[in-house]
């Protein structure tokens, strides 16, 4: 990887990391979607920049798909869903903000621990980016666990996927274009299915809070 690409990767990793961090701090679902769109756009632009710098058409195509599906189509889809149900709700956390921040700090320290150092060395020059991506992964998983809203759970999954894409760049994986398209198609289909379920949950439970999903526990 050229120095330009490595610098870009570090910048995008920081953006992705900050996006997930702010996801924990804000409560409104609409803000969550904006942060996800931002993270996806940063990921897509990084792939585009890398594709142009390394003159790889397949990577440019993957970048275009990423931007169209994850940074543009998915957020529009989510906002429409919110409008349809007149829901601009917010979701609370199980843990208070100070405890959440302490947990996030622990996760970041874990990502920077010596356990994972070996993975950061797989591709020379990405030692700074790798732990940021890994921390974003852990924080995205924690977002799903700590928040009560189904929107937060869905955005947590998608933010996790974005973070994995960036981590993949850090360890230098390049897949054949067919597989990249296969993975993106899977994600696109996942978004459609998750949205269908969110509609069903809202219709049947009248809420998008996981606290109201008690049918199974009450049986």
């Amino acid at each position: 990887m050229s120095e330009y690409v490595l610098n870009a990767l570090l910048f995008v990793d920081m953006a992705a990391f900050l996006a997930v961090l702010f996801m924990h701090l804000i409560k409104k679902d609409s803000h969550l979607i904006w942060l996800y769109a931002l993270q996806s756009m940063a990921t897509g632009l990084f792939l585009l920049g890398t594709g142009i710098a390394e003159e790889e058409r397949s990577l440019i195509m993957v970048a275009a798909l990423t931007i169209i599906i994850k940074a543009i189509a998915a957020p529009i889809f989510f906002f429409r869903l919110m409008d349809r149900f007149g829901s601009h709700g917010s979701s609370s956390s199980y843990l208070s903000t100070p405890v959440t921040l302490a947990a996030l700090m622990a996760l970041v320290m874990f990502a920077y621990s010596s356990v994972f150092q070996i993975l950061g060395m797989l591709l020379p020059g990405t030692v700074g980016s790798f732990p940021l991506s890994l921390a974003a992964i852990f924080m995205a998983i924690f977002l799903m666990i700590n928040r009560r809203g189904v929107f937060s759970q869905m955005i947590g999954i998608l933010a996790l996927e974005n973070s994995i894409v960036l981590l993949t760049a850090c360890i230098g994986i390049k897949q054949p274009i067919a597989l990249e398209v296969g993975i993106i198609s899977d994600i696109a289909l996942w978004i459609v299915i998750a949205n269908a379920f969110i509609s069903m949950i809202y219709r049947q439970f009248g809420s998008l809070s996981t606290s109201d999903l008690k049918q199974l526990t009450e049986e």
Binding site: E161, I201, Q204, L213, Q215, E219
Partner: peptide
């Protein structure tokens, strides 16, 4: 069966399995 309990189970299945698979 489009029942609330079935939807809840399916959502749980989708989220946990997707997390695992990622």
């Amino acid at each position: 069966y489009n029942k609330p309990s079935a939807t809840e189970a399916a959502w749980k299945y989708l989220i946990l399995n997707s997390l695992g698979l990622l």
